[in-house]
């Protein structure tokens, strides 16, 4: 029972309460760059979920079995970003060879994701402590966290793209056109997501 509670708590937390874009401010650059059309937003979202999943797993393994035992946790920044950059490059090459249609659809976003705060962010979060169990994240928990954070990112991206497509037809004052109105929209969305802050399905272990 505790396991399921843990899973639900991580998932809901990552998607709604601690949404990467709307609460944690991670992944903003592509958020405002790619959210103009719903189709490109979907492509970007799926690419991010995929990259976050594999990045979480690989970085967790390296952290647990190499960095911590040898007491060089300060190397996290360098090693993680190298691993992420290499992984994204590998994924891009594999896509180009085995699924050209998917590559055409997602290909241009993959280099953008390398320098995305969100991917490095989730890798660093997974080195910390799971607030629900009070223990450091296990492999499965960090993988789940990675996937769900990506889903939260995609959710915010899709919502934003839908709204921006409608904003195209409205009369906006000249100074606010483009980015400022997008920021205000994001702010209103963040305000509504703030409502999730008190969401608490299960009380954490230990009170």
């Amino acid at each position: 029972m505790n396991n399921i509670a843990n899973i639900i708590s991580i998932s809901i937390g990552a998607v709604f309460i601690n949404n990467f874009i709307l609460s944690k401010f991670l992944g903003l650059c592509p958020f405002f760059g790619v959210s103009k059309k719903l189709s490109s937003a979907t492509g970007m979202g799926m690419a991010v979920v995929f990259v976050m999943a594999i990045a979480s797993s690989f970085t967790w393994v390296i952290n647990r079995f190499i960095l911590i035992p040898y007491d060089v946790a300060y190397l996290q920044t360098i090693i993680f970003i190298l691993v992420i950059a290499a992984l994204v490059q590998l994924v891009e090459m594999a896509l180009q060879k085995y699924s050209p249609s998917l590559y055409e659809a997602l290909g241009i976003y993959l280099p953008l994701i390398t320098t995305n705060c969100a991917v490095l962010g989730v890798a660093l979060i997974n080195t910390g402590v799971n607030t629900f169990t009070g223990e450091p994240y296990t492999f499965f928990e960090s993988l789940l966290n990675g996937v769900m954070s990506g889903v939260g990112f995609m959710l915010a991206l899709l919502l934003m793209a839908g709204l921006r497509e409608k904003l195209e037809f409205s009369n906006i004052p000249k100074g606010l056109e483009g980015l400022p109105i997008a920021f205000i929209t994001a702010g209103l969305m963040a305000l509504s997501f703030l409502g999730f802050a008190g969401l608490n399905f299960f009380s954490p272990v230990g009170g």
Binding site: L67, D71, L75, V83, A86, Q89, L90
Partner: peptide, 18 residues
């Protein structure tokens, strides 16, 4: 020496793999 070896070997491994 330890961090040097770790970063060096991971970097070499990734480079080789790519």
């Amino acid at each position: 020496l330890i961090p040097l070896i770790i970063v060096g070997s991971i970097g070499a491994f990734l480079g080789l793999g790519l």
